[in-house]
Each structure stands twice: as structure tokens, then as C-alpha cells.
């Protein structure tokens, strides 16, 4: 059979190329462009090479934000994942309560980020907020606008409130996919509740948990709106996470070069951690 050559088919790829170009490639390249040059406005650019990268990597401010960011992400993942699994395990597998639970779980996920921030801000205000006022009247000295520890606690609890549901729903889906025969077999084999969890439920949830952790890592590592509305990065700089810091540098100080360099480093950190995590999880799978 003779093969016909028709290069016109390439035109079909054009929409995708355009989409990717405007959506990802051109913005990214603009950032790369800024990160290696200095500008004083009027579209006049001066070549700076890797100066901004060196500056950012050496700056104590960046180190602090990164450290805060890692601490925050570590905290919320280590709370949300076990809590999510626990809630998913205790949810009913069938009956009328299933849909009630699912709707309740999905509710926080539907609330816009800035609304969540504003809600918790008012909720936690020490003088008029329900949470803040109650804590204070119970004798706790709580003021998230002034105390770093209170601010951190409030931010972490807010994130747990907002996002644990995601872990719950993913785990629940994983749990529902386990056939009854597994539980019956475990029952017959005399397995304890813990053994059922350890050898049946956890292995079957592994894939969804990998996804849940990845999503929670990426989202929390890039968190901006909620802490910005809640604490504005304060008191002082104690809740200034990477993205808040980045916005301060880029839009507050208008240091486009360092901000662009920081964006790229930020991006590479996210990419690197995700890649390492995913590779390790998948390698375990193969063994």
C-alpha cells in the first residue's frame, strides 16, 4: 500500500500550541527574562546574569520564608493526612448518611480562599470573634494579631478546616473500592482491626494517598490568599510564607529582577520535591 504524505495535519496542532504558548510558555519566559536583567522602567533592560539568583539564594529573608513555608506545609500535611484517613474510616459505607457526610465534607472545599480567610479572621478576632472571645474568656491569652504562636495556630487550623475534606474524600473513594471479600477474608483469618487497616486498607489507599499528599503539598506550598487575608503575613513577618514574600518583593517593592529569580527558584523547589516524592512512591510500588 502506498503511504500518502500530507503535512497539513500539523495545522491541527496549532490551537494546542497557541494555548500552551500563551498559557505557560510565554509567561514563564517573561519571568526568565526579568530574572536575568535589571530594568528601570521605560523598557530599558540591562543584563545582570545570575546576580539575582545569587542574591536571593544568599538572602536571609528568603531562607526564613522558605523555612516557614516548609514548616507550615509539614505541619498541615502531618495533621491533615492522618486526620483525613481517620475521618474517612469512620464514615458510613452505605445508607442514607453517606450523602449527608459527603456533602458536609465537600462544603469547605467550595468556599473561595479569600472568604475562608475573612471568615477565620472575624471568627478568631480576640474581642468580637466567637473563637477569639471564647478562648480569652476561658482564660487563654489568645490574640492572633499580636502573638506569633496564636497566628500560626490559627493559620494551621484554618488550613486543616479548609482542606482535610480533600484528603477525606480521596481516602473514602479508595476505601470504597475495596471489595467486601477482603474484609471477610481478614475476618476469617482472625485479623485484628489494626491488621485490617495495615494490610488491607492502607495498601489499597496508597495510590489515592499519594495523590492527596501531592495535592496538599503543592497547594499548601503555594498558599497565599488565606494567610494574606487572615494575618497579612504578620505579626511582623512570622506568617510571611514564600508566596506572600514574593508578592511583597514583586509588587510592594517592585524589585522585578529578584522577584523573578525567586519565582523560578520557588518553582524548581516545588517541582523537585514533587518529583522526588512521586519517584519514591512509585519505586516502592514496583518492588
Amino acid at each position: 500500500m502506498r503511504k500518502t504524505t500530507n503535512q497539513k495535519a500539523w495545522w491541527l496542532v496549532v490551537p494546542v500550541l497557541l494555548l500552551v504558548a500563551f498559557n505557560a510558555f510565554i509567561p514563564l519566559m517573561t519571568v526568565v527574562n526579568y530574572s536575568v536583567q535589571e530594568t528601570f522602567g521605560n523598557n530599558a533592560f540591562f543584563w545582570e546574569g545570575v546576580t539575582w539568583f545569587e542574591k536571593v539564594l544568599r538572602s536571609e529573608r528568603f531562607h526564613d520564608s522558605l523555612l516557614r513555608q516548609l514548616l507550615f506545609t509539614g505541619m498541615i500535611i502531618s495533621i491533615e493526612v492522618p486526620l483525613g484517613i481517620a475521618v474517612a474510616l469512620s464514615m458510613p459505607r452505605k445508607g442514607p448518611w453517606v450523602s449527608v457526610c459527603l456533602v458536609l465534607m465537600a462544603l469547605p472545599l467550595l468556599i473561595p480562599w479569600n472568604v475562608v480567610g475573612a471568615m477565620w479572621n472575624i471568627f478568631a478576632l480576640p474581642d468580637i470573634g466567637l473563637l477569639g472571645y471564647s478562648l480569652n474568656s476561658m482564660g487563654f491569652d489568645y490574640n492572633f494579631t499580636q502573638q506569633p504562636v496564636s497566628a500560626w495556630m490559627t493559620t494551621v487550623v484554618m488550613d486543616v478546616w479548609h482542606w482535610t475534606s480533600l484528603v477525606v474524600l480521596l481516602c473514602y473513594a479508595g476505601l470504597c473500592s475495596i471489595p467486601d471479600a477482603y474484609y471477610q477474608a481478614a475476618h476469617i483469618d482472625g485479623a485484628s482491626r489494626w491488621a485490617v487497616f495495615r494490610y488491607i486498607q492502607l495498601p489499597k489507599m496508597k495510590r489515592v494517598l499519594t495523590i492527596a499528599i501531592l495535592l496538599r503539598f503543592m497547594d499548601s506550598f503555594m498558599i497565599y490568599t488565606e494567610p494574606f487575608v487572615l494575618t497579612g503575613g504578620g505579626p511582623g513577618n512570622t506568617t510571611t510564607f514564600l508566596s506572600i514574600d514574593l508578592v511583597k518583593i514583586a509588587l510592594g517593592q517592585f524589585d522585578l529582577g529578584p522577584a523573578a529569580a525567586m519565582s523560578l527558584i520557588y518553582f524548581l523547589v516545588v517541582l523537585l520535591i514533587c518529583w522526588v516524592f512521586y519517584t519514591v512512591m512509585m519505586r516502592n510500588e514496583e518492588q
Binding site: P179, A181, Y182, Q184, A185, H187, I188, G190, Y199, I200, P203, K204
Partner: peptide, 21 residues
């Protein structure tokens, strides 16, 4: 009596093995 006390073994339609073991 519960299953565990009856000393019964069962093989199911779809193979049940503990994957990680």
C-alpha cells in the same frame, strides 16, 4: 458464633491476597 470462632476457611470468587506481604 462469629466467623473467627467457627474455624472455617473460605476461598472467594476473586482472589484475596494481602498485596504488601
Amino acid at each position: 458464633q462469629p466467623t473467627a470462632a467457627r474455624h472455617i476457611a473460605q476461598v472467594f470468587q476473586f482472589p484475596v491476597v494481602y498485596d504488601t506481604m
